[in-house]
Design a protein around this nucleic acid. Structure first.
Length: 500
RNA sequence: GGUCGCGUGGCCGAGCGGUUAGGCAGUGGUCUGCAAAACCAUCUACAGCGGUUCAAAUCCGCUCGCGACCUCCA
């Protein structure tokens, strides 16, 4: 089958056929976290979403350069243009060096990304490592007449940019006329900026500021939006294929990023913009201040008033994959519970499937259906990375697999080719593309092997008891194992066991 | 107030002009010493009101409700 990849492009608000700028190669830039506190669960959803895209593009055979930055300077606590940045603020609070703060939370972030089994980006640049590039970009923008200096700070001139380029507001849907109207009302009590919508690309630092660098204008620090422009240009060129980030970065961050890039090189940076939607909890955006939030660790330990039990990382990831990245996802205890059961069901089916060898004489009808489902899963992923739909195809294959397990008539006739096609599909989708892990199997193979042997022994002993109709012993074994979260399932072909 | 988006069955969540989405929960059956699992069957839908169309959850309009952004946020 010949599939075309299509992507919902935020810039044009349309689903477009994906054509890379250079055949076979893809440059993808995703705005990474600001490392001033522990990772937020919403961050995790975003980066899991982009990880799946990255994995899928690799699966399609593209050579992908995936750049995801770490913001370690410039991200202000508020918009007063006077306050310290988030890192500096935190450093004072925790009595640490700013770089200690950065290191601490970067480590935490990376650990969490590992826990969620995401692939590392090709390049993970830091803003503080690219001060020179940012200063150069400010110089270029100034030279192009799209910025102005005031008291050692440099501001991007949005009004001039909007009047000379028909670009500002395109991504976020802001109307530039409104910016102009605002001028009259807001001009009186203005700070250094000529206009409220102008934004700093370089800021002069005051005495108390911890992180500052020399520049032609002042000792100061770069504006938050500038780092992404500078680093994407450095590693992916002035134009590249995909730029991603959370929905909430559209404005002002991404809008300003585009303005800066155009201001510097007169070209729009990314061909396709992808925005992931928010993770909600109980219908609202997660927010620490509203007490409507949960950390990944709380989720894993069950230590939160919002949930009734602990959920493993893969269950959480599976839960995320059951919705499309472009939609909001509502996290509730009931939804997680449902996700957990679904996750276990598909992993168990996969384990059985991968253990199959050989095949039957053939079953044209069933095999046609299997092939259709496999093809549809492939098509679903090509259709704007539709993970929930692709997953649903795998779920439709599960009854077929389980029927085979039950030895039902007709199902054991599936040919070896069809079985291996399913094996390959499950393996590729679950593990390579979705980046899931079978949590039972990853719990240490050596121990798992011994454990399996032990379980076989116990099941064998119980089988003897059952043959003698010694139900007391039989049930005692089963009940005790249940207490240990090991479940026995008596089937036609013997007893299977699973971990709960 | 402005911009964008959303309202799908008990819950989560796809679909976006004509087909059973899927998961979880429920119900009835098969299997079973019992249980669980599995398998088979099955019940709950497209916020409301109009319009376009042979045909609308899907397009258009209005009403109601909700969310995000407009200030830092993935």
């Amino acid at each position: 089958m010949n599939h075309e990849l299509s992507i919902q492009n935020s810039l044009t608000r349309q689903k477009e056929k994906f054509v890379p700028l250079k055949e076979g190669f893809i440059g993808m830039y995703v705005c990474g976290p600001t490392v001033y506190s522990d990772v937020h669960l919403g961050n995790c959803r975003t980066f899991v979403s982009f990880d799946v895209m990255y994995r899928f593009l690799l699966h399609l055979g593209y050579k992908v350069r995936y750049v995801r930055n770490i913001t370690d300077v410039g991200h202000l606590v508020d918009d007063a243009d006077t306050g310290d940045d988030k890192i500096g603020e935190r450093a004072k609070l925790e009595q640490l060096e700013p770089m200690e703060v950065v290191q601490k939370y970067s480590n935490g972030f990376h650990e969490m990304m590992d826990i969620f089994n995401t692939r590392k980006p090709s390049i993970e640049p830091r803003a503080t490592g690219h001060i020179m590039e940012q200063i150069e970009m400010v110089e270029t923008i100034l030279a192009n007449g799209l910025a102005y200096e005031k008291n050692g700070s440099v501001y991007f001139d949005t009004i001039k940019f909007a009047s000379t380029h028909d670009e500002y507001g395109k991504l976020s849907g802001r109307v530039i006329d409104e910016l102009l109207v605002e001028t009259r009302d807001d001009l009186k009590n203005q700070d250094e900026k000529n206009h409220p919508s102008d934004f700093a690309i370089w800021m002069r630092a005051d005495e108390s500021h911890l992180m500052k660098w020399e520049s032609p204008w002042s000792i100061g620090f770069p504006g938050w939006h500038l780092e992404c422009s500078a680093m994407s240009t450095k590693y992916l060129g002035e134009q590249f294929d995909i730029h991603g980030g959370g929905n909430d970065l559209k404005f002002p961050h991404h809008e300003n990023e585009i303005a800066q890039n155009i201001g510097a090189c007169n070209c729009s940076p990314a061909k396709y913009w992808i925005h992931t939607n928010m993770l909600l909890m109980n219908g609202r955006k997660m927010s620490k201040s509203d007490n409507n939030s949960i950390t990944p660790d709380q989720l894993f330990s069950g230590d939160s008033e919002h949930i009734t039990k602990a959920y493993s990382p893969m269950v959480v990831k599976f839960f995320m994959l059951q919705s499309h990245y472009g939609s909001t996802l509502d996290l509730t205890d009931a939804a997680l519970l449902a996700g957990e059961k679904g996750y276990k069901k598909i992993m168990e089916a996969n384990r059985y499937l991968q253990g199959l060898a050989g095949g039957g004489s053939g079953n044209a009808e069933l095999e046609t259906k299997i092939q259709e489902l496999i093809d549809q899963a492939v098509a679903d992923m090509h259709d704007d990375f539709n993970t929930p739909k692709a997953l649903s195809r795998l779920f439709e294959l599960v009854p077929i697999i389980n029927s085979h397990k039950d030895g039902k008539d007709g199902f054991d006739t599936i040919s070896a080719e069809a079985i291996s096609a399913m094996q390959e599909t499950f393996k590729v989708y679950l593990f390579d593309i979705f980046g899931l892990q079978d949590e039972f199997e990853t719990e240490g193979n050596a121990i798992a092997d011994k454990f399996s042997g032990l379980m076989e022994l116990i099941i064998d002993i119980r089988k003897d008891a059952r043959t003698e109709k010694n139900w007391g012993t039989s049930d005692k074994i089963r009940d005790k194992l249940t207490e240990l979260d090991i479940q026995l399932k008596d089937g036609k072909e013997g007893t299977h066991w699973t971990l709960n």
